[in-house]
C-alpha cells in the first residue's frame, strides 16, 4: 500500500548563529560553534537534514560553587577550584562550549569585581580554545559592572554575554554591539515575553544572527512541560516565518536539575528514588534530551556522565537515516 508521507514545508527557518571567533576571524578560539539553521522540526530528516547538530555546553563556575550537589563535587574533584582547569577538563571530555557563570563572590570570598571577572575570563580563554558564554550573577547592576569590562577586554571574540532580561537589556546589548559579541536573552517561560525581548533587543540595532535566546525551562518534575511546550511553540512560530522567534535556543538542564531535591540530596530520601548519582544523571539527561527534541540548540550541562550520554543521543538523532 503506497502511503504518501506528509512532509511539512515551512516558509521560515531558524537563524544560523556562530559562537566564538578564531584567529583569522578576529578572535583567539581554536574552533567556533555554529548552531541554528533548522528548516524543519527537530530531526525530521525525511524533510530536511539537521544543518547543525545541537551542541553541549558545560557550565564552569568562576569561583568554586558553594551549593553544588555532592554528586557533582565528586565527579569533578579538585578541578572545581580553578575555572581554567575546569574548562580545560570540559573540553577534554568533549564539550562544545563553555558557559562561564559568575556569582556574587569574587576572589577570596570578596564581592565579584570587574578586575576579577576580566582575569577569570582571560585565564579560561587561555586554557581552552572553545567558544564562551559568559553569564553575570543575574543582578542588573552587578551584571553591568562586570559584563561591560569583559566585553571590552575580549573585543572580537564573539562571546555570548548574558543574561539580557527585559529590565536591563540596553547596557548589555550596547556592550555586545560595540565589541562584536553576541547576547543571550532570557525570558520566563512565555512565548510572548520571549518575542518581546527579542524585538526590544533588535530595535536597538543588534542583528538577529547575534542573539541566542533562553526561553527558560523547568527541570523534570519541576515544570519541564511548560518550558517544553514554550520551546515547541517558539520553534513552530519560527518555521512559520515569525522573525522574532527564529533564534536558536539555549536551555540549562544542568542548573535546573541539580538544584532539585532528587539530584541534590542523597540522604533521608525514599527508597523508591533509587541510587543517587545515577538518578541525578538520569534527571539531567532526560531533561536535556526532552528539550533537545523540543528544539534546543544548546543544552548547558553539569555532570560529565551526562555529557557522554547526551552526546551519544545527539549523534544518534542527527545520524541521517532514511526512515
Amino acid at each position: 500500500m503506497p502511503v504518501e508521507i506528509p512532509k511539512d514545508s515551512w516558509p521560515g527557518s531558524v537563524n544560523t548563529v556562530t559562537l566564538g571567533a578564531t584567529g583569522d576571524q578576529g578572535g583567539s578560539r581554536t574552533s567556533t560553534v555554529t548552531i541554528g539553521g533548522e528548516q524543519s522540526l527537530p530531526f525530521m530528516h525525511f524533510e530536511n537534514p539537521t544543518p547543525h547538530r545541537p551542541v553541549i555546553a558545560m557550565e564552569v563556575a568562576a569561583a568554586r560553587p558553594a551549593d553544588w550537589s555532592a554528586v557533582l563535587l565528586e565527579a569533578w574533584g579538585s578541578t572545581l577550584d580553578d575555572p581554567a582547569v575546569w574548562a580545560r577538563a570540559c573540553e577534554d571530555a568533549g564539550a562544545d562550549l563553555i558557559v562561564l557563570q559568575f556569582g556574587l563572590k569574587g576572589s577570596d570570598d570578596g564581592p565579584v569585581s570587574a578586575e576579577f571577572a576580566v582575569e577569570v575570563v582571560k585565564e579560561v580563554m587561555d586554557s581552552t580554545g572553545l567558544p564562551l558564554v559568559v553569564l553575570g550573577p543575574g543582578q542588573a547592576e552587578i551584571d553591568n559592572s562586570i559584563l561591560v569590562p569583559i566585553a571590552d577586554a575580549t573585543k572580537g571574540e564573539r562571546i555570548v554575554l548574558g543574561l539580557c532580561e527585559e529590565g536591563n537589556y540596553r547596557t548589555i546589548v550596547a556592550a555586545a554591539m560595540a565589541n562584536d559579541h553576541l547576547v543571550l536573552g532570557k525570558t520566563p517561560m512565555d512565548v510572548n515575553l520571549a518575542k518581546q525581548l527579542n524585538i526590544l533587543m533588535t530595535d536597538m540595532g543588534l542583528p538577529l544572527d547575534r542573539i541566542v535566546m533562553d526561553p527558560t525551562t523547568g527541570a523534570l518534575g519541576y515544570g519541564i512541560e511548560y518550558g517544553y511546550s514554550v520551546m515547541e511553540r517558539l520553534r513552530l512560530a519560527a518555521l512559520q516565518g515569525d522573525a522574532m522567534t527564529q533564534l536558536p535556543m539555549l536551555v540549562t538542564p544542568g542548573v535546573e536539575t541539580w538544584k532539585t531535591k532528587e539530584s541534590k540530596v542523597g540522604a533521608g530520601i525514599p527508597d523508591e528514588w533509587g541510587e543517587w548519582a545515577e538518578r541525578g544523571v538520569n534527571w539531567e539527561t532526560l531533561t536535556a534530551v526532552a528539550l533537545i527534541e523540543a528544539g534546543a540548540d544548546v543544552v548547558v550541562l553539569r555532570h560529565p556522565q551526562s555529557l557522554v550520554r547526551v552526546r551519544a543521543a545527539i549523534a544518534e538523532l542527527t545520524a541521517s537515516e532514511t526512515a
Binding site: W273, G274, R279
Partner: peptide
C-alpha cells in the same frame, strides 16, 4: 527495572 530510572520516567 531500577528505581533511579523508573522514577524519572
Amino acid at each position: 527495572f531500577a528505581p533511579e530510572l523508573i522514577y524519572p520516567l
